Measured scan of single mutants.
Amino acid sequence: MGFKLLSKLLVYLTASIMAIASPLAFSVDSSGEYPTVSEIPVGEVRLYQIADGVWSHIATQSFDGAVYPSNGLIVRDGDELLLIDTAWGAKNTAALLAEIEKQIGLPVTRAVSTHFHDDRVGGVDVLRAAGVATYASPSTRRLAEVEGNEIPTHSLEGLSSSGDAVRFGPVELFYPGAAHSTDNLIVYVPSASVLYGGCAIYELSRTSAGNVADADLAEWPTSIERIQQHYPEAQFVIPGHGLPGGLDLLKHTTNVVKAHTNRSVVE
């Protein structure tokens, strides 16, 4: 069995187990497998329904001669939608809004960016022009300005110390501490036991640490421990890039980060 097929099978099995364990909360999309990078042309966006009122959005972007996937989250909030992270750029984010209108038909009224990198804030200006209120932590807003990236308009308070959590509509926002970046936030959907790890969490097929220019490698494993301790009931975990899975993604990420750190020390 090929690795790609095995990865998709694991996603399907995880979703099936969740649907059985929580039949009222989960209505997993039966329309197909989780979209992969090879299936999404740059400039297009796919939506994948995880649970009743919960979707991931998947886009792709060219970077350094390669094409990478990027995940975000959409959560229903009454007759409105909360968006977590842009679709990595203005063109993708405009396509995301169009796809949401086509498939869901509810307005996106608020959006949260989970850290300051372009795959999370690139497209904020498109959201703002569409009347979406954009939010991020003060740290993310400051770092985005320093980096020359787009800056969300509103500040999220109460997320300055490791372990801080605040309720934001249908989700809980959690600051686990520094990891992929010093400002990275985690998003949890309690009604569906869905954990969105953003770039602080890796997919299972990833074996290298990737972009760690703004990471705190020493603190990252401790931050992941905080996530595990705060959300032990999480059933569906979405990484910032690639295929979702279960809580095993947290341990896998820790292993990859520690291996990278150990290699760096040896070198």
Rank of each mutant, 00 (worst) to 15 (best):
M1N: 04
G2D: 15
F3S: 07
K4N: 08
K4P: 12
K4Y: 05
L5N: 13
L6V: 09
K8Y: 07
L10Y: 09
L10A: 08
V11A: 07
V11G: 06
Y12E: 05
Y12H: 06
L13I: 07
L13E: 07
T14I: 12
A15R: 06
A15F: 13
S16K: 06
I17P: 04
I17Q: 05
A19V: 11
A19I: 13
I20R: 11
I20W: 07
I20E: 13
A21R: 10
A21V: 11
S22I: 15
S22R: 07
P23E: 07
L24N: 08
A25Q: 09
F26H: 15
F26Q: 10
V28F: 13
V28Y: 06
V28W: 13
V28T: 14
D29F: 13
D29C: 08
D29L: 13
S30F: 15
S30Y: 15
S30H: 15
S31E: 09
E33L: 12
Y34R: 12
Y34K: 13
P35C: 15
P35H: 15
T36N: 15
T36V: 12
S38V: 11
S38D: 09
E39D: 09
I40R: 11
P41H: 14
P41Y: 07
V42L: 09
V42K: 08
E44Y: 15
E44V: 11
E44M: 10
E44P: 11
V45H: 02
V45A: 11
V45W: 02
V45G: 03
R46S: 10
L47Q: 03
Y48I: 10
Y48H: 07
Q49D: 08
Q49C: 13
A51V: 09
G53K: 08
G53C: 04
V54N: 01
W55H: 04
S56I: 04
S56Y: 08
I58T: 08
A59C: 09
Q61N: 10
S62T: 10
F63T: 11
F63Q: 07
G65F: 07
G65C: 02
A66P: 13
Y68L: 13
Y68R: 04
Y68S: 12
Y68Q: 12
P69T: 06
P69V: 08
P69R: 08
S70M: 11
S70P: 03
S70E: 03
S70N: 06
N71G: 04
N71H: 02
V75L: 11
V75N: 02
R76S: 09
R76M: 07
R76N: 07
D77S: 13
G78V: 11
G78A: 13
L81R: 02
L81P: 03
L81H: 01
L82D: 03
L83V: 13
D85I: 00
D85Q: 00
T86P: 03
T86W: 00
T86R: 01
A87W: 00
W88Q: 00
W88M: 01
G89Q: 03
G89F: 02
G89K: 04
A90R: 14
N92F: 00
N92I: 03
A94Q: 14
A95D: 11
A95W: 06
L96I: 04
L97N: 00
L97E: 02
L97K: 00
L97G: 01
E99N: 05
E99D: 13
I100T: 08
E101A: 13
E101C: 12
E101Y: 08
K102C: 14
Q103E: 13
I104Y: 02
I104W: 04
G105D: 14
L106W: 14
P107Q: 09
P107D: 12
V108T: 14
V108L: 15
R110G: 12
R110M: 05
S113T: 11
S113C: 09
T114Q: 00
H115F: 00
H115W: 00
F116N: 05
F116M: 05
F116I: 04
H117I: 00
H117P: 00
D118H: 10
D118R: 10
D119K: 01
V121G: 01
V121H: 00
V121N: 01
G122L: 15
G122E: 09
G122S: 08
G123P: 03
V124W: 03
V124L: 08
R128N: 11
G131P: 04
V132K: 02
V132S: 04
V132E: 02
A133Q: 14
A133F: 12
T134K: 01
T134L: 03
P138A: 14
P138M: 07
S139Q: 10
R141P: 03
R142F: 15
R142D: 15
A144L: 09
G148I: 07
N149K: 06
E150N: 08
I151C: 07
I151M: 09
P152F: 05
H154G: 12
H154A: 14
S155D: 12
L156M: 11
G158K: 11
L159R: 01
S160I: 12
S161Q: 14
S161D: 14
S161F: 15
G163E: 09
G163S: 08
D164F: 09
R167T: 06
R167M: 06
G169P: 05
G169F: 04
P170D: 06
V171R: 02
V171H: 00
E172Q: 14
L173P: 04
L173K: 00
F174E: 00
Y175C: 03
Y175H: 05
P176T: 01
P176F: 00
G177T: 00
G177S: 03
A178W: 10
A178S: 08
A178R: 08
A179R: 02
H180K: 00
H180N: 01
H180A: 01
S181W: 02
T182P: 09
T182L: 09
D183E: 10
N184F: 01
Y188N: 04
Y188R: 00
V189C: 01
P190E: 06
S191F: 07
S193Y: 12
S193L: 09
S193C: 03
S193P: 03
V194E: 00
V194H: 00
L195E: 00
G198S: 05
G198W: 04
A200H: 04
A200Q: 04
I201N: 03
Y202N: 07
L204K: 13
L204T: 11
L204N: 07
S208Y: 08
V212N: 11
A213V: 13
A213H: 09
A215C: 04
D216F: 05
D216V: 10
D216N: 08
L217D: 12
L217C: 05
E219M: 15
E219A: 10
E219W: 08
E219S: 15
T222G: 12
S223A: 06
S223G: 08
I224E: 02
I224Y: 00
E225M: 11
E225S: 06
R226W: 05
Q228W: 14
Q229I: 05
Q229T: 05
H230K: 15
Y231N: 04
P232T: 06
P232V: 06
E233Q: 13
Q235M: 05
F236S: 13
V237I: 05
V237T: 06
V237L: 05
I238S: 01
P239N: 00
P239G: 04
G240P: 02
G240E: 03
G242P: 03
G242Y: 02
G242E: 03
L243C: 06
G246W: 04
L247D: 05
L249H: 00
L250F: 06
L250K: 01
K251F: 05
H252N: 14
T253L: 00
T253I: 04
N255D: 13
N255M: 06
V256M: 07
K258W: 12
A259Y: 07
A259P: 07
A259W: 11
H260F: 08
N262Q: 05
N262F: 05
N262P: 09
R263S: 08
R263Y: 05
R263K: 14
S264K: 12
S264G: 12
